[in-house]
C-alpha cells in the first residue's frame, strides 16, 4: 500500500522534475553559447501555454491514433520516471521493474512516432522511418548494458535490488568492476540517442524535416509529446545516476529520513548526469545523418556493452 502511495505521489513529482530538468538544460545550453538564456521556469510556461491552445487535427490524419498517441507516450514516459523515484522513496522492490521501465521508454518513443506518421504528412513519414532506425540503433546497447548489473546483483532485474546491491558493495557500479564500468560508459553513450538530442535528433531535425513526427502536432498534444521527451531524458539521467553512480557514502546513511533523503539527493545530483549526457553533446556537436548516427550506435556503445557483457560473464 505504501509503495502504491509513493508511486502516486511520484507521478506529479516526475512531471515537475522533467520540466525543471528541461529548464536547467536550456539555461546551461544558452550559457555555454554565451547567451543569457530563458529562465529555468520557461518549460512550465511553455507547457501551460500549449495546454491552453487550440488543438488542430489535420484532415488527412487518423484522428483517434493522432490524438491518443501523445497521451500514451507522455503517460508511459512519466511512469518510467516515477517508478525509480517511488521505489527509492518506499524502499520496496518489484521483480523485473527495470525491464518495465526500459519498455515504457521504448513505448513512449514508438507512440510519438506512430502518432506523427498518422498525421499523413510526408515529413511525419520520414520522421517515422528515421526514428525506427534510431530505435534499432540504441535499444540493443542500452539493454545489453543492463545485463552486467543484473549478473553482478544476483540475477536481479529489480531496480531497487540493483541499487541496493551497490550499498552492499560499499561502492557504485561505475567503479566496482571493469565489466560494470564499461556498462556505465555504454549506458551514458546511449542516452543522447535515447533522449533524441542534437547529434542524434535526426527524427525531428528542424532544418531538414520540420520537426519530423511533431510537424502536425499543436496545442495540448504537442505539450504532451514534448513532456514525453522531457520525461524520457529525466528518467534516463536519473536511471544512469542511480544504477551506476549510486555511491553509498554519498547517498545513504541518512537514517532518520530513510529512502526519501536518498531520493532527494539523487534528484539533486541527476542534473549533473543530464548535463554530461544531454546538454554537452547538444552544445558541442553537429547533427549526424541517419546512417552516421546508426553507425555510431552500433560501434562505440555496442562494443562497450558487448565487452561488459563478456567481461561480466567471465566474472570480472
Amino acid at each position: 500500500m505504501a509503495a502504491l502511495a509513493a508511486l502516486l505521489a511520484s507521478l506529479p513529482a516526475a512531471v515537475f522534475l522533467s520540466l525543471l530538468f528541461e529548464g536547467i538544460d536550456r539555461k546551461l545550453h544558452a550559457r555555454m553559447q554565451g547567451r543569457i538564456g530563458p529562465p529555468v521556469t520557461q518549460p512550465f510556461y511553455d507547457f501551460a501555454k500549449l495546454l491552453n491552445k487550440e488543438s488542430v487535427f489535420p484532415s488527412s490524419s487518423s484522428k483517434a491514433i493522432f490524438a491518443s498517441a501523445p497521451v500514451i507516450a507522455a503517460a508511459s514516459s512519466i511512469l518510467a520516471g516515477a517508478i525509480p523515484l517511488a521505489s527509492l522513496v518506499a524502499g520496496t522492490s518489484v521483480v523485473g521493474d527495470l525491464i518495465l521501465i526500459l519498455y515504457l521508454l521504448t513505448m513512449s518513443s514508438i507512440m510519438v512516432m506512430i502518432g506523427g506518421s498518422s498525421s499523413g504528412n510526408p515529413y511525419g513519414a520520414i520522421g517515422f522511418s528515421r526514428k525506427m532506425v534510431m530505435l534499432i540503433g540504441y535499444e540493443v546497447p542500452l539493454l545489453a548494458s543492463i545485463l552486467p548489473l543484473s549478473l553482478k546483483s544476483q540475477h536481479s532485474f529489480s531496480y531497487h535490488g540493483i541499487v541496493q546491491s551497490q550499498v552492499g558493495m560499499g561502492t557504485c557500479f561505475a567503479f566496482a568492476y571493469p565489466s560494470s564500468a564499461f556498462a556505465a560508459a555504454a549506458f551514458l553513450a546511449c542516452i543522447p540517442a535515447a533522449a533524441g538530442v542534437v547529434p542524434f535528433d535526426v527524427p525531428e531535425a528542424k532544418t531538414e524535416i520540420v520537426h519530423g513526427y511533431l510537424v502536425e502536432y499543436g496545442g495540448p498534444h504537442l505539450a504532451l509529446a514534448r513532456l514525453a521527451k522531457d520525461a524520457a531524458s529525466f528518467a534516463l539521467s536519473f536511471l544512469a545516476l542511480t544504477l551506476f553512480f549510486y555511491h553509498p557514502p554519498l547517498f545513504e546513511g541518512h537514517a532518520s529520513l530513510g529512502g526519501l533523503a536518498s531520493a532527494i539527493l539523487c534528484v539533486a545530483f541527476a542534473p549533473a548526469m543530464m548535463f554530461l549526457t544531454v546538454t554537452v553533446p547538444r552544445t558541442v556537436f553537429a547533427r549526424l545523418k541517419v546512417g552516421q548516427a546508426f553507425k555510431f550506435c552500433w560501434s562505440l556503445p555496442l562494443t562497450l556493452s558487448a565487452l561488459s557483457v563478456v567481461l561480466s560473464a567471465a566474472g570480472f
Binding site: 555555454m32 553559447q33 554565451g34 535528433d201 528542424k206 532544418t207 553537429a286
Partner: peptide, 13 residues
C-alpha cells in the same frame, strides 16, 4: 551553414 547541420553553438558564435 552551421544552423543547417544542427550546430547551434557555431551558429551563435
Amino acid at each position: 551553414m552551421a544552423y543547417e547541420i544542427g550546430f547551434d553553438t557555431l551558429f551563435m558564435f
